[in-house]
Design a binder for these strands. Sequence first.
RNA 1: GUCCCCGUAGCUCAAUUGGAUAGAGCGUCGGCCUCCGGAGCCGAAGGUUACAGGUUCGACUCCUGUCGGGGAUACCA
Length: 575
Amino acid sequence: MNLLSQIHDRVRTALAGLVPDVEPFVAMVKPAQDAKHGDYQANCAMSLAKTLGKKPRDVAEEIKKRLQLGDVLQEPEIAGPGFINLRLRDGWMAQQLQQMARSDRLAIDTQHAKTIVIDFSSPNVAKPLHVGHLRSTIIGDSLTRLLRFLGHKVITDNHLGDWGKQFGMLLYGYRRYVDADAFRADPVRELARIYVKVRKEMKDDVVGPDPVDDAARLETAKLHAGDEENLRLWKMFMPFSLEEIDKIYRRLEVTFDHMHGESFYNDMLPSVVADLLAKGIAQKSEGAVIISLGEDQPPSIIQKRDGAFTYTTSDLATIKYRMETWQPDAILYVVGAPQSLHFKNFFAAARRAGYTQVELRHISFGSVLGDDRRVLRTRDGGTIDLEKLLDEAIERARAIVDENSGELPEAERKEIAETVGIGAVKYADLSQNRNSDYVFNWKKMLAMDGNTATYMQYAYARNRSIFRKGSVDAKRFRADPPSPILDSPFERALAVQVLRLEETLVACVEDYQPSIITSYLWDVAKSYSGFFQKCPVLKADTPALRDSRLLLCDLTARVIQLCLGQLGIRTVERM
RNA sequence: GUCCCCGUAGCUCAAUUGGAUAGAGCGUCGGCCUCCGGAGCCGAAGGUUACAGGUUCGACUCCUGUCGGGGAUACCA
């Protein structure tokens, strides 16, 4: 049940005929910022007054008169310059809560189903994963879970960087610098060392010839052309790198339907270029093949003068494959903000190449910065090891579990520590507006108080403990929910939050913004905490009140669990 | 050079896309364990939203300019 859209419907009807296009004004109805302004507020009277040439308060009165309240809304109040404050009827809320309780998906509707490809994580093979890779992985995973829950057909594809120039660098470096013992002991670390070493040899920001750069490019071109020795090394490196990456995915509980890396598309590249040349979409220029994007725009290069293909070529081959294989309505690329120009150009090139029906969208996110506020880079060597981060998170959680819940069995404590530790890391990232850069620090990443996964998990566990303590089977509140009593402001405030679940999830997919869910969770938790403090549940005055409050508890727990689930974070019954 | 992003409490970040008195967490200070789990709760202090103009009923949000930071930019992804 989408509360906001229900109210929008009513306002839409009320506004009909006042202006030709009412939608922008309907959209001005939103949740009230402050509870004393009601549950929702309509802010449209002021701007509507402008277009109608009337006084804002008169317009507000007019809207109020036209508004069909039904059994949903109480009599609106007009305040200030012309705000219309809307308040829900308690009886109606109670009915909606019962409906949520009865539904195994909390009465969340499915949306018109679309087929959506999500391209995320996409690490470069042969470089160690670090915190920067976290963002794409967990944002992409979270969006996948949510879109699927809302009824879409989602295909996840990890577009591994397994074929680019970094591999040429590696081939060049491996021949010169490999430490055979180190490679045997820990191939991935050794490859990472080699990568960083070669990267440092290459000149930075210098115009002119660079022998190392040229050599690496040559190795890449040889690989792409099918050179046997390079291919042999490539095949040798790959499993080590994949295993390393996979280890992290298993710990994060992230899975992919496909892992079609760049190498997967290698054979398609020449024909993609030939095809675009034949259609006149691409041209030869200065020995390279380019797609021109306009006068003052640098073109997209799809084949370099040394014959090697670029990531744009690979991206174009990828979109061709995806369109032919899955016919998606949309393709989402969860990739960092520094690549926004690339995607802008690539999308333009793709449209010129004829992919006009599919929605292409760059789900951009900010960079992870170091203490010096500069972007963390593999090439600088100074990166945070992702595995260490996860280990540390779990260790810290373990220490707190042991301290507070030493009586729980070892196996359970271990599982709690993992759930809490991993949850903390994921939540720390997802709770941030994805567009912002953020400064990495251990403390924040591992935080377990404040607006964190741990706090939510704790609220959930405490909630479940009420049912255990009272020997109450929550199933009863799902099969045959009692009518909730919302007399106390704390009960009512909690109820409003619970009812806002669907509109929150919808807002989240509209912006592909997981932090909308985390800030909602925080609101739910705050309301719950007020309720928990002031409204005794098991010791409620009457049996009816006790049942009502148990229902509110159960719904709250389910909302928390469901929301965390959309973020890829699990709950535990005890912690 | 051109383009993009950013500048909000001591620190790290929000602000439902133009709405009512700019909010949280951490940190600091002060309260709360005969009471359903203290990994908790309540309160206090802390702001000229970088700066200067403009747009309008209303601006952290939109426009112009300045300063500061970051990023991208014909051959790495």
